[in-house]
Design a protein around this nucleic acid. Structure first.
Lengths: 143, 143
DNA sequence: AATAAAATATGATAAAAATCATATTCAAGA
DNA sequence: TCTTGAATATGATTTTTATCATATTTTATT
């Protein structure tokens, strides 16, 4: 459902949301260790996120990555879409092109509801919402 | 969530359940075309399923694959487990080892319920159940 | 017994995903 | 303006997954 890369990206974004700010930028090497993802790998994943405005960055000395208010208003799904592309989440569980509500495949009926729940959730939950949950003590790191 | 291989395997099993029997065995080449999976590939996938008793087979002239009553009593999850291994479905959406009900990751709370639904479904639905749905006209092929 | 038709076993190749390495660009501070 | 510290861009390597090919074994049929 989610690629490894997407999972890593989500972890990195969440980590930044919780631990960085414009005043306190965090360098890749200081992201990679706590989220347990190779530095070069996460560095590469961050690029398209910066380009899409989900993460902010600054080069040079005292540079690094962080999230501002705007960045935090992106959904979790938007992260996945940037990294994995749109269709990964949208295709049916069995990847059947011809499967739809009128002519559902045998797995469709039972699974599509719970699947839709997951997708809705990823779409409607913003980064800031997850941050709030952690701050309220209802969810936890480390990632 | 499901590998390509698992999806193919499920398609093949379903196809056999609907179109083959001990009296009317079906050869790989006659499976591969309708389910739209390369012959050599599906042939390989069928082997472990035969070994695990999810599919029946016979060699030689008039040989082929089919499902008997016993075979049909396996769950969809059992197919996935044979092809992808047990842990693929079991690991958390984010693949976080430390994530659990006591210390859920930020995505856990909202997602675990719908996820559990899907898994339960795959576990409790037997091949014969899907066959019945198709026969009743509530679900459709082609796959 | 010999033949032919099928699955089975094994391994080779190709494609995609994940990981690693390095050169380039930009910005801050001296 | 020079140096240094950081992201950024690009590409190479490795690993995994998917796909293809072929030789072997089994069994029904003649």
């Amino acid at each position: 459902m989610l690629s490894n890369s997407s999972k890593y990206a989500i972890k990195a974004v969440l980590f930044l949301a919780l631990n960085a700010s414009e005043k306190k930028k965090v360098m890749v090497k200081d992201i990679s260790k706590p989220i347990n993802v190779p530095q070069a790998y996460i560095a590469k994943l961050l690029q398209p996120l910066v380009k899409e405005g989900i993460v902010s960055s600054a080069r040079g000395p005292r540079g690094g990555f962080y999230l501002d208010e705007n960045n935090m208003n992106h959904s979790i799904m938007s992260i996945v879409n940037v990294i994995d592309g749109e269709k990964r989440l949208k295709s049916c569980l069995m990847s059947l092109k011809k499967c739809n509500e009128e002519k559902p495949c045998p797995l469709h009926n039972e699974l599509s509801a719970s699947r839709a729940q997951i997708l809705n959730n990823l779409k409607s939950r913003m980064i800031k919402d997850l941050v709030k949950e952690v701050e309220a003590g209802n969810a936890f790191l480390p990632l």
